[in-house]
Nucleic acid binder design. Structure first.
Lengths: 227, 227
DNA sequence: GGCGGTCTGTGAATATTTTCACTTTGCTTA
DNA sequence: TAAGCAAAGTGAAAATATTCACAGACCGCC
C-alpha cells in the first residue's frame, strides 16, 4: 500500500487527457502516442507520459496508448464510473444555471436537490429538481445519498453553509462564493473564483502592451504555460 | 523600462489580498502586517511581502501596511480603476446567470451586451441587456467599447466564436467551454473549466479514505497547499 | 530471426514557486 | 536622542513542477 502523493496539477491534467481521448475515440482512432496528444493539445509529451505512469504502465513501447483502454483507465482513476449525487445550495440564478449544466451529466454527476433559505423558493421545482429548505439538508442528504455539494450562495453565507453541510457528512464541495473558506482536512473544497479570473484579465489589459510582442506575458488558457 | 516577469500565481493572489483588505477596511482597521494577513487567511507571510514587493515598497517597517493605501495600490495594479465593458457570447442559462453576476459589478466590469446565434433569442432582453446576433459582433463591440468577452457557448462552437471575437479586436476572453482553445499570443484567454474541478472532486472521493487521516491529500480551496 | 524505426517509461537536469531566516528600517518610549 | 521592538524587504535554501534525453521494449518488414 504505497501512498504516492499525486499532485493536483497532475490529476487536473488527467481530466484534460480524458477529454482528448474521448475526442480521439469519436474520431475512430485506435491508438495515440504521447507525442501526438501533446502536439494536438499543446502539452509536453514527457509530462503526459509521466502523469500516466504514476498510475500504471498503460502504454506500449513502439505503439503508443490504446485509446479506448486508456480512456477506461482514466475514467476509473478519476472515479467517474460511480455516479455522484449533487446538491446545489443556493437557488439563485447561478444555482439554477448549474442545475442543468451539461458538464455535470457528462462526468456522471446527477443534481438531485436544490436548497435555499428563501421561503418563497422552497417547494418549487427547477425542471425535475425540487428546492428544499436548507434546514433539512442533513436529512435529505442522507435519504438521497448526496455526496457532493455545490455552494452557490452569496459570499457572506458561504462559511456557515459549508459548516452545515460538512456537519452532515459531505466530503466534497465545490464553492462559487468568492471568499476564502475553512474546512476540515478530510473535506475536499474546490473553489471556483470567477472574481480572480476576471481580475486577472483586468490586470492583463492594464499592462502596457508591448508593441513588438516580445515582452508579452505568455499566452495561456489557464492550463499550461508556454515556453 | 525594466520588464519584470510577474507570474500569474502572484497576480491571482493580489486579487485575494485585495479582498482581504476590503474586509479589513470595512472593519475599520488602519494598518495590517503581512503576518496578520497571513494568519487570518492561511497564507505565508513571506509570500505576501514578496508578491507586494514586485510592485513597490508599500509597507512601513515596524508598522505594516496601511490598509486603505495598499488597497488603492492593488486596485490600480489590477486595473480595476478603469471600467471594463463585457460582452457575453451565448444567451443560454449560464450566459444569462452571468449577466447579472454581482462579481462583475464589484470588479468594475459592466455587462453591456449578450450575443447568440439563435434567431428566437435575438432582440430579446435580459434585464437591461439586449441579445444581439453574433454576426454583428464586430460592429457592436466597436460601438459599445467592448473590451472583454465571455464565452458561454457549447464546446463545439467555442473555437469559432473565439476566432470571431479576436478578429474583432478583443484582447481579453474568459472561456467557460470545457475545451482547449488556441489564441494569438497577444490575447489573454482565461478558461474556467468546471469539468476539471468536478472531476477533481470525483478523484478525491475515489481515493481510499485514509482512516487515520495521516495520508490524506492536503486540504485545499484551490489557492494554496498546506504543509 | 534480425534490423530499423517508433514510442514508452524514467533518471537527471532545469525551471519555477514557496519558504526560511536574516538585515534593514522606522516607530515608540523613556 | 538612544534603546528596544516590530515588521518590511530580500538573498538563499528548499520544495515542486516541468522538460530533456536516453535506455529499453515492441512492431513490422524483409
Amino acid at each position: 500500500m504505497k501512498v504516492e502523493k499525486i499532485s493536483e496539477l497532475t490529476t487536473n491534467r488527467l481530466s484534460v487527457y480524458l477529454r482528448c481521448l474521448n475526442a480521439l475515440a469519436a474520431d475512430g482512432a485506435k491508438t495515440v502516442s504521447s507525442d501526438k496528444l501533446a502536439k494536438q493539445f499543446h502539452l509536453n509529451s514527457a509530462q503526459i507520459r509521466k502523469d500516466l505512469a504514476y498510475f500504471g504502465e498503460f502504454g506500449v513501447r513502439g505503439v503508443g496508448y490504446y485509446v479506448e483502454s486508456l480512456r477506461d483507465h482514466l475514467t476509473k482513476i478519476l472515479g467517474l464510473t460511480k455516479e455522484h449525487r449533487v446538491a446545489i445550495i443556493g437557488a439563485g440564478r447561478l444555482g439554477l444555471a448549474l442545475t442543468d449544466y451539461y458538464g455535470f451529466t457528462q462526468s456522471n454527476f446527477t443534481v438531485v436537490a436544490l436548497f435555499d433559505a428563501d421561503a418563497g423558493k422552497i417547494g418549487q421545482k427547477a425542471g425535475e429538481v425540487e428546492i428544499f429548505d436548507i434546514k433539512n439538508f442533513a436529512e435529505i442528504a442522507e435519504k438521497d445519498n448526496i455526496d457532493v455539494a455545490v455552494i452557490a450562495v452569496p459570499a457572506q453565507f458561504a462559511q456557515s453553509v459549508l459548516e452545515q453541510i460538512t456537519k452532515a457528512g459531505i466530503k466534497a464541495v465545490m464553492n462559487f462564493a468568492p471568499t476564502p473558506l475553512r474546512v476540515e482536512t478530510d473535506v475536499k473544497l474546490k473553489t471556483v473564483d470567477l472574481t480572480i479570473s476576471l481580475e486577472s484579465l483586468s490586470y492583463f489589459l492594464a499592462q502596457p502592451a508591448a508593441s513588438n510582442g516580445k515582452n508579452l506575458k505568455p499566452k495561456s488558457d489557464g492550463r499550461r504555460k508556454s515556453k
